[in-house]
Amino acid sequence: MSQDDEWQGSKGKEQRLPVFAETCRWLDIYFGGREPGFVPPYQEKNATPFRQVVLNIVANIPYGRVTTYGEIAQEAARRLDKPRMSAQAVGGAVGWNPICLIIPCHRVIGAKGTLTGYGGGMMNKIALLRLEGHRVTEKGISSGVTDWVKW
């Protein structure tokens, strides 16, 4: 018996859970350049109430669309019944996102289309935005107004 077998016990056996099949199907469709039309089930663990609100907003940015940290801050403030919210605070919550792609934080950009940080690396953010049909350079995104989400 290997140390891995001993450590994992019966959990080390191959498991064919439906959530993995759904996620693989979602990824295949997405990386095939199409909007999957569904979201595989997931759980946000250890998210503060503020992070939950921000991630829920981000999760609802449609395929092929983008929004800004400032727009998310305005919507989060509305949902939390606050007079205003900091775009920087939203940036921290977006950066905490543990499920990139499924919760599409790559669709969040800076003011006036500028590209900002991305945990998966800026080149990956650019590639994902291009996959979704955006015209992107290292300096920013140059999509039409219809590509922007405003709440």
Rank of each mutant, 00 (worst) to 15 (best):
Y30M: 06
G32W: 13
R34H: 14
R34G: 11
E35P: 08
E35Y: 09
E35A: 14
P36H: 10
F38C: 08
F38Q: 08
F38L: 09
F38E: 12
V39G: 09
V39R: 15
P40D: 05
P41W: 01
P41L: 06
P41E: 03
P41G: 04
Q43E: 13
Q43F: 14
K45H: 13
N46G: 15
N46M: 10
T48C: 01
P49F: 01
P49V: 01
F50D: 01
F50R: 09
F50K: 06
V53L: 05
V54S: 01
V54Y: 04
V54T: 07
L55H: 02
I57P: 02
V58Y: 04
V58P: 03
V58F: 02
V58T: 02
A59E: 05
A59M: 04
A59L: 06
A59G: 08
A59Y: 04
N60E: 12
N60P: 01
I61G: 09
I61T: 08
P62T: 06
P62V: 06
G64P: 00
R65P: 14
R65E: 14
V66R: 03
T68P: 02
T68H: 03
T68F: 00
Y69V: 02
Y69A: 04
G70F: 11
E71H: 08
E71C: 09
I72G: 11
E75T: 14
E75G: 07
E75M: 10
A76F: 06
A76Y: 04
A76S: 07
A77W: 15
R78D: 13
R79W: 01
K82E: 13
P83D: 15
P83H: 12
P83G: 15
P83E: 15
M85K: 11
S86C: 04
A89H: 12
A89E: 12
V90C: 14
G92A: 12
A93T: 14
A93W: 07
A93V: 13
V94W: 05
V94M: 04
V94G: 03
G95V: 04
N97Y: 09
N97L: 10
N97H: 09
N97A: 06
P98I: 11
P98Q: 13
P98K: 15
P98L: 10
P98R: 14
P98G: 13
I99G: 12
I99A: 11
C100R: 15
C100L: 15
C100I: 15
L101S: 13
L101P: 12
L101K: 10
I102A: 13
I102N: 11
I103N: 06
P104F: 01
C105E: 11
C105I: 13
H106W: 10
R107D: 05
I109V: 01
A111R: 07
A111Q: 06
A111P: 05
K112G: 00
K112A: 05
G113Y: 03
G113K: 02
G113S: 04
T114F: 00
T116K: 00
Y118E: 01
G119K: 09
G119V: 12
G119Y: 08
G119T: 13
G120C: 08
G120I: 00
G121F: 02
G121W: 03
M122N: 10
M122C: 07
M123S: 15
N124P: 09
I126A: 02
I126E: 07
I126D: 03
L128Q: 10
L128T: 08
L128D: 12
